[in-house]
Each structure stands twice: as C-alpha cells, then as structure tokens.
C-alpha cells in the first residue's frame, strides 16, 4: 500500500465531479418530489418548482456529462475506465472478499491505489456501468421526457411515454443506489474523510 501523496484528481475532474454531485442530488430530490407529488405535501419541493429545477439540472448534467466524456477522450483520465476482461471475475471476487471479510481482518487491499490504477476492479466496473450505461440511458430518457412530443405515442399498445418514464425512474433508482454505495465506500479510507478531502485537493493520501 502506498504512503506517498498521489495527485490523482486533476482540477477538471474535481470540478466535473462536484458539479455532477450537485446536479444529481437536485435531480434526485426533485424527481422524488414529482413522482410522489401531492397537493398536501409539505416536506417535498412543490411540483412546479421540481419541474423547473429538474429540467434545468437535467440540461446542466447533460452538458457536464459531455465534458466528462470529452475529458476522458482527450486526457489520460480515460485509461482508468478501461476494463481488462481477462481475469476480471477473479479480480472482482478478490475485491468483494476483501470488502466482506479481509478489511475486518486488517488485510491490505488486494488492489491498492496507484498512479496507474486509481480504481479497484469493483469500483472500475461499477463506475463504468454508472457512467457509460446508466448515465446515457437516464440522460436520453430525460431529454425524451423534456420533449414528449418526440416520443412515439403508442408502443406495444401502451403509451410510449410510459416506457420512457419507467426507464428513467428505474435507472434513476439504480443510480441513487450507486450514489449511496459510492458515498459509503468513500468512508473506507483512514481517516474516514480523507477520500472526500482528496476530491477537494486532488491529492490522494
């Protein structure tokens, strides 16, 4: 395990990350507010405000996502998201075993953070799934909901908007689960807040 300071998070990654976090959290809260809207609700954001905020943050997170893709294409950050399929299953099993048992027995992480490998195999797979599958689906379905007149009126004898909305809501839920796990896993570092600090300073300790 390295004890050196590593500069792993360049400024653009940190900016993208925090903007993404702000927009995603706003989308999550406003999305839940719309889905469970009620004339008498007092603790959620009003439907009208939720619609406005959701639309604005949806557009902004799409632009931010484009910056992430462009950044990953034109900088070295993209290499951290490349998955070697050979031996992946074994690497994932090792990492899961570490999270479930090894870390309680004070074992060293099987895939320590290095300049060449920012993420462990489990992080890599989940980040790739979230950023390259989940995000495109939720963004495309979100834009379709923003321009509902472009969605086919009927799909399989049912409203085309329903399919779009279901995709949007289901992937919204999956990404929310990802967010919670992501936040929890970030507390595995010692001290607990060091990963959060890293995303502010750029330096990994």
């Amino acid at each position: 395990m390295t004890t050196e300071k590593l500069y792993l998070y360049p400024l653009w990654v940190r900016l993208w990350h925090w903007l993404n976090a702000i927009f995603f959290l706003t989308l999550l809260v406003t999305g839940i507010s719309m889905q469970y809207s009620s004339p008498n609700s007092s603790f959620l954001i009003s439907f009208e405000k939720s619609v406005q905020l959701h639309n604005i943050c949806g557009i902004l997170i799409s632009i931010n996502y484009l910056l992430f893709i462009i950044g990953n294409i034109f900088t070295t950050n993209g290499k951290f998201y490349k998955i070697q399929l050979k031996g992946l299953f074994n690497r994932l099993t090792k990492q899961i075993q570490f999270y479930l048992f090894g870390m309680f027995q004070h074992q060293n992480p099987p895939f320590p953070v290095s300049e060449k490998s920012k993420f462990n195999p489990l992080q890599k797979v989940s980040y790739v799934a979230a950023m390259y599958i989940g995000f495109p689906i939720i963004i495309i379905s979100g834009w379709a909901m923003l321009f509902p007149e472009l969605v086919p009126a009927v799909v399989l004898n049912t409203s085309g908007l329903l399919f779009t909305a279901l995709f949007h809501v289901i992937f919204g839920f999956i990404l929310s689960v990802f967010l919670i796990i992501h936040l929890y896993v970030c507390t595995f570092a010692s001290p607990i807040v060091s990963n959060f600090k890293s995303m502010i300073t750029g330096w990994h300790y």
Binding site: M34, Q35, Y36, S37, F47, N157, T158, S159, L161, L162, T164, A165, L166, V169, I170, F173, V177
Partner: peptide
C-alpha cells in the same frame, strides 16, 4: 391513464414502489 398517456405523479407502479422500498 397508461393506455393513452403518462401523467407524472399520477401513475405509480405499486410493485415497483414496493420493490424499490425493499431494495433500499
């Protein structure tokens, strides 16, 4: 409502609601 349109907030799938609560 689903046969013809989708109304945000009015259409809620009970199974999905329960499943999401259980998973959460």
């Amino acid at each position: 409502i689903l046969n013809n349109s989708y109304v945000i907030g009015a259409n809620r799938n009970q199974y999905l609601n329960k499943l999401s609560l259980i998973l959460f």
